[in-house]
Simulated scan of single mutants.
Amino acid sequence: MKYMLLVCGDDTADASGMAPVEPWVDDLGDRRVRLHGHRLAPPDRAVTVRVRGGEVLRSDGPFAETKEYVAGFDLLECDSMEEAIEAAARHPVAGIGALEVRPFWEDEDAEARIRALDAELTSAARERDADRMTACYAPDATAFLDGRKHRGADALRKSFGELLTGVTGPVTREVLDFRVHVDESIAFGHALVRLRATRAVGTRINDLMCVTTGYRNAGLRWLITHEHASRTSEERS
């Protein structure tokens, strides 16, 4: 399960004797407990935004005037809250400030949503729907297909349209092996995909491709942002 550590500094604390944070980062990173993190600029560079009566109200500085402030964050993946607390207790700032440990919502299954996106791509190909296929990609996506580079939704839609108009009947996209690694707002997938179809001239397409895909969390859904497909074999009859 993922946990967010909010690293809270204290303006009144003496940080001169604080241990460096790098060993903590390196240790948890080597054990793949810490996934990501970063320092934040000091509170005097913050801007607080409110909207009241349709008017945007901006004020310089943090939301609350307090000696404690969020100085940074770390994203952990732990088996339990106890493990996350243990990691937080070892953070150097814990000795002079505080760390808030907060679990992520549990109703998000990013890998399942990515696999559903891949299933939608398969279904759209079978139904010969270039628009549905294109909708699986981000507007600024880049794809390397058939040895050609396609950048942007319009280029992808044209490529899919050319494929679909050049064949008759359904296009079968069979995913033989699909592995996904998710890291918060981005993900990477590796798959073996077999593409079968019959060309308008009567010859058959039977391509086995290695496909590497990059995904981005677009807020309400995941989208493909980068794809590279290389043919490993082709059979014609």
Rank of each mutant, 00 (worst) to 15 (best):
G95S: 09
A94C: 13
S80W: 10
A84T: 02
Y69A: 02
E100A: 10
F73K: 01
A87C: 15
D60R: 14
E108H: 05
E55M: 11
L99A: 14
L76E: 02
K67F: 01
D60S: 12
A89N: 14
D107H: 11
E100T: 02
P92D: 03
E55I: 05
R102D: 03
I96A: 10
E82P: 05
A71T: 00
L76G: 05
V56T: 05
S59G: 09
D60Q: 11
G72I: 04
E106R: 03
E65C: 01
V56F: 05
F104Q: 12
W105L: 15
P103K: 03
E106H: 13
V93G: 01
E82H: 07
V56W: 09
V101F: 09
E82W: 02
R58P: 05
E106S: 07
D109C: 12
P62N: 09
A98H: 06
E83D: 11
D60I: 06
W105T: 06
L99E: 15
G54E: 09
Y69V: 00
P92W: 04
E68K: 01
R58I: 13
G61Y: 08
W105V: 07
E100D: 11
A94M: 10
P103D: 05
V93S: 10
A94T: 00
L76H: 00
E106K: 06
A98V: 02
D79G: 11
R58G: 14
D79F: 02
G97C: 05
S59E: 13
E100V: 08
V101M: 11
E65A: 11
